[in-house]
Amino acid sequence: MAQVTLSEIRKSYGSVNVIHGVDLQINDGEFVVLVGPSGCGKSTLLRMIAGLETITGGTLDIGGRIVNDLDPKDRDIAMVFQSYALYPHMTAATNMGFSLEHRGGSKAEIEERVNWAAGILGLEALLDRYPRQLSGGQRQRVAMGRAIVRNPQVFLFDEPLSNLDAKLRVVMRGEIKSLHQKLKTTTVYVTHDQVEAMTMADRIVVLNRGRVEQIGAPLDLYDRPANRFVAGFIGSPSMNFIEGTITAEGFATAGLTVPLPIKAQSHVGGPAILGIRPEHLRLDPAGIRAEVLLVEPMGAETQVTMLLGNTQVIGVFRERVDLSPDTVINVMPDVAAIHLFDTDGGQRLD
């Protein structure tokens, strides 16, 4: 178990900077998810922690040791890869015990550890199989088994669920989480899927273009996104953004006025961007006029794309509304759930 500290971590390939100085403190036993769109640098960051990429600048500290120049094997970490990277020519048991073989474990010791890990992951019956004889979920479990046998200080996961189908992904998500609750090993987990991030993380780190946009607990990010990027990235469907001006009466856009919370009064007069999540719009005859463009019934809820002023917004309604395109409806935002961002940097206005 260990604490992982990144200070001013940078990465560049030649003159191209891909990570621009990341500071992050991961506490002992914490489950931290790095999330962001593709190309944001989350995998590079993880691979730098693993020692698979060199660190251009800054220091990386794992368990009180600076490990910048150490080999992966000397960092006491274990990693689960996107493709699982199981050795095709070895059985599940050999795959899992392989790292111990190279750390001078005795045969009996290795077997004991492998059996322990197999027991935790429900792999006892599959130990003699080769990777090609295993299903996707089973391979995933073997890859996790390979990581846990060594009892490392830190687990690293690189998009481990992206090769699974949607159903299995939900199952494995639960398994990884309960594994973490059992072992309490510090974990860094990379994904591009914000649902995975929300459901699994103790804390989420949102990355964009090699910079940290926000760090926080999942619900904090959902409730108080620090900027427009985080607001748009966390939550599905994405938050709606409407450009306009803050006035004394409310938020003015294209001839409409949206009511605002009282605290917004301090920003009166300036242009701003209003953010409202689809689930925070409700049908209300007293609400704002909107023209329906597209209706997508999902069963539990109905997703409606509409034109509000001259901005396209999405609303998600729990009730079964029977609407057709081109009709006009009235929607009301939950005033307490309105977010305001400035127009230049997209920073949150409070």
Partner: peptide, 18 residues
């Protein structure tokens, strides 16, 4: 050969020759 296989081996503690 998939690069991830070798990276897994590096994490597992193998040097180049191994």
């Amino acid at each position: 050969l998939p690069a991830e296989l070798e990276e897994a081996a590096r994490v597992d503690g193998l040097g180049r020759f191994k």
